[in-house]
Write a protein that binds this DNA or RNA. Structure first.
Lengths: 247, 247
DNA sequence: GCAAAAGTGTTCCGACTACACCCATGC
DNA sequence: GCATGGGTGTAGTCGGAACACTTTTGC
């Protein structure tokens, strides 16, 4: 008696509870350092609602699946990538945000938990299944999206800038070896042109002591060759969990 | 045909989708400046599961109700308060986090969207309905809570410290008129004793120019009377939406 | 040689730290 | 007077902003 729906009879208010399907939508960013562009991954919808419109890659949560598992699954279906950063963004759950919440659907609600991801661009191989449209869009050229996804994207972009300023995500997403210019470009692409003078940026980061100069030089066209650096997790340890600024 | 459950037949994977009830749990903080204590609001559960244990005040989302409406409703049921700060915290949605997800319940899942609130202590009048246990607990004395609520609380506490350091929430929650000592106590209570020298704290805040000295003095026991200050929203405008530090 | 990119150094100035000290009140 | 809390001032130091300058490459 107890186990099977114990309160439906005892408490009349239970009847008023909303039933939900839970969706997961991912805001997946990537930085193309070569072209200096900040990209977001969009997919074309092949189903109603919003058939034929671009949207953030998403899915509905399955039985026995955790939210983060679902987020991972969407990612894995769209791109093959080894290094990534993933965290929960925000939960959008107002009524009427999904047209499937029709009066005819017995009051079923659709709630969306959004996730934020940053992936290594060079490694991120898009999975083209022949049919589905899927593409990296430069942030400035994003078209009107399905659902409230433009809003979600806006929110994700804000989070991206914060993350990048206050945590070392950059190194999870840059190549193993990188020049200080690469690093500077990375920040410039996300934060805008005038976030810092290059030379000051340089000395500040080097003074922190978690960038290890491999001594190897690379030449990119004209100009003096640059040293390749490596992120040193040990050297970073003292800053771990402490607030810090990369601006 | 279209409107009524259009894809259940078309797409076999729909059968595997999880069905959810969505709960809202609030981490409600308050600062008792008189006694220098940081408090969190807990309620006693009168139903299974976890009957007889303390928990964060929460509820299940009703039909037609937005998440934030639900959060507001819980708050309003427990305390009468005029000034508060409320924002979404995190969404916990793994399977098996709620014992009601029994095998007998046809796979119904329980997802919890947590909200974070900060209320004005003096104004916050607890609603005692005679039966229900409800109390402000000093943060250090919080007992083991129902569900994963200790974890949620931990998360909320982290957010509180961040909010307080980087935004002017303090003024939404202090009395209209306050002394600089009050303000200092407020920060000390939340951030710990050694966050800043009083005199430096003082001059930094005054230099920012959004604290208006009313000229009125109050005497609290012995010692020189203190000026009452008022938060000046106009004066704060230049800092709005800019990152800033109150440490 | 010259342009281009990488890397170094220097000066200025504002902000934060750590104090020492003065002021106004209750008793 | 003196203890108590409120309020002011200052000297030292650290770090960021701005910018000039040197080094090493391709062509």
């Amino acid at each position: 008696m107890r186990g099977r729906n114990p309160r439906k009879s005892a408490n009349p208010s239970l009847a008023q509870l909303a039933d939900f399907k839970v969706g997961v939508d991912n805001v997946i960013f990537s930085v193309d350092t070569a072209q200096n562009r900040l990209l977001v991954l969009l997919v074309m919808r092949h189903e109603d609602p919003f058939m034929g419109q671009w949207s953030l890659p998403g899915t509905l949560v399955r039985q026995g699946e955790s939210l983060e598992d679902a987020a991972d699954r969407v990612l894995a279906e769209k791109i093959r990538v080894e290094n990534l950063y993933l965290e929960q963004l925000y939960t959008f759950g107002g009524p009427n945000r999904d047209p499937r919440e029709a009066p005819t659907s017995y009051g079923m609600r659709y709630l969306s938990v959004s996730y934020f991801a940053l992936v290594r661009f060079a490694e991120a191989e898009l999975i083209a299944d022949g049919v589905s449209g899927i593409a990296w869009y430069p942030l400035q050229q994003v078209p009107p999206l399905a659902f409230d996804h433009n809003q979600v994207l806006e929110y994700g972009y804000r989070r991206l800038r914060n993350k990048v300023e206050y945590s070392p995500v950059a190194f999870e997403v840059l190549p193993e070896l990188f020049t200080l210019s690469d690093l500077y470009q990375f920040y410039t692409t996300i934060l805008g042109d005038h976030f810092s003078d290059y030379s000051n940026f340089r000395s500040r980061l080097l003074k922190l002591g978690f960038l290890h100069d491999t001594g190897v030089k690379v030449s990119r066209g004209a100009g003096r060759p640059a040293s390749l650096y490596r992120f040193d997790a040990n050297g970073f340890a003292p800053y771990k969990d402490k607030p810090m600024v990369f601006i």
